[in-house]
Design a protein around this nucleic acid. Structure first.
Length: 284
DNA sequence: AAAAGCCCCTGGACGC
DNA sequence: TGCGTCCAGGGGCTTT
């Protein structure tokens, strides 16, 4: 997103090459035609969606899914810096088996969308309908904004039977908290992923650990952003650089390793179909 | 209405 | 080296 913004904003899409009919869902009707020739305005983000407003009044929506990534190939004059890549792979970027969409901009740069598992999403809709878009309406608050506070969580958790892990992962409550970060947040907060979320809310007041939870959500996300995200296998920035937050994981993907706080082995369990990592001793 | 399961898809790691 | 199994960061959709 940060790498994409300066590349795309203010540019005009010269041409669009689609290598298949869609990703997770089929591309919208006349997708290439409605993108071509459009000037790109503001690039914004909502939850895990990238949104680009176009001169036509349409809005381009992109979700990277699990393995989606954008790579920017600068205009020809700078392209020689990437020569080493061509040599190593023997495949020109944009021509790979999983390069599904290539945008060519008016300055000659090419923006390649690559996504092996094709869990990503691209859609195009009138910007005025953003509020009612099926994928955008119902999305919860941003975790780094002022709306997230203990009172908000208390209101959402009250009477809720779902375990904390599921509640924090629920994008309808908080938008943009992923599986890795939920495990990390809960460990830092000393809260068991299995605990019923409603158990932190009492009749008139709420458990002070909700304040801690809020602080840790912010901390973990901010630290991950500073570290450039978590690169496990194929996450990367538009220039191919990898994130490094994975080096700071305290529990995620550390099953059997000693908890940094107490030395007990980190445990793994599956909740709503996804792995959770935690310390039975430190998290209650 | 909320919660759990299924599924989309490819590739990497691991055991034999 | 090859083959089968399991697992993966997301989340919509269907079922209970």
């Amino acid at each position: 997103m940060r790498g994409l913004k300066p590349v795309l904003e203010g540019r005009t899409i010269q041409s669009v090459s689609l290598r298949r009919d869609g990703l997770r869902f089929p591309f919208p009707a006349d997708f290439a035609g409605r993108l071509s020739g459009q000037r790109i305005g503001n690039l914004t983000r909502r939850a895990k969606y990238i949104l680009a407003s176009l001169g036509s009044g349409d809005c381009l929506l992109v979700h990277l899914g699990m393995t989606g990534r954008f790579t920017v190939l600068p205009a020809q004059s700078e392209a020689r810096n990437l020569g080493e890549f061509y040599f190593e792979t023997g495949t020109e970027q944009g021509e790979g088996a999983h390069d599904h969409v290539v945008l060519t901009l008016d300055d000659g740069a090419r923006v390649v969308y690559t996504d092996p598992r094709r869990f990503g999403i691209m859609d195009l809709f009138p910007e005025a309908e953003a509020g009612t878009h099926k994928l955008l309406s119902g999305i919860g608050i941003e975790p780094l904004g002022n709306e997230l506070n203990a009172d908000y969580l208390a209101e959402k958790f009250r009477g809720k039977a779902a375990p904390l892990k599921a509640a924090l992962l629920d994008q309808k409550l908080i938008a943009g908290l992923g599986n890795i970060y939920v495990s990390e947040v809960l460990h830092r907060s000393g809260l068991s992923p299995k605990r019923k979320s409603g158990s932190l809310v009492h009749r008139k007041t709420h458990d002070p650990r909700l304040e801690l939870l809020v602080r840790n959500i912010r901390d973990v996300l901010n630290e991950a952003i500073v570290a450039g995200g978590s690169t496990l296998q194929d996450f990367a920035h538009t220039d191919g650089a990898e994130g490094s937050f994975q080096q700071r994981f305290r529990v995620y993907d550390r099953e059997g390793q000693p908890c940094a706080q107490c030395g007990a082995p980190i445990l793994r369990l599956v909740q709503s179909g996804r792995s959770t990592f935690y310390c039975r001793h430190c998290q209650k």
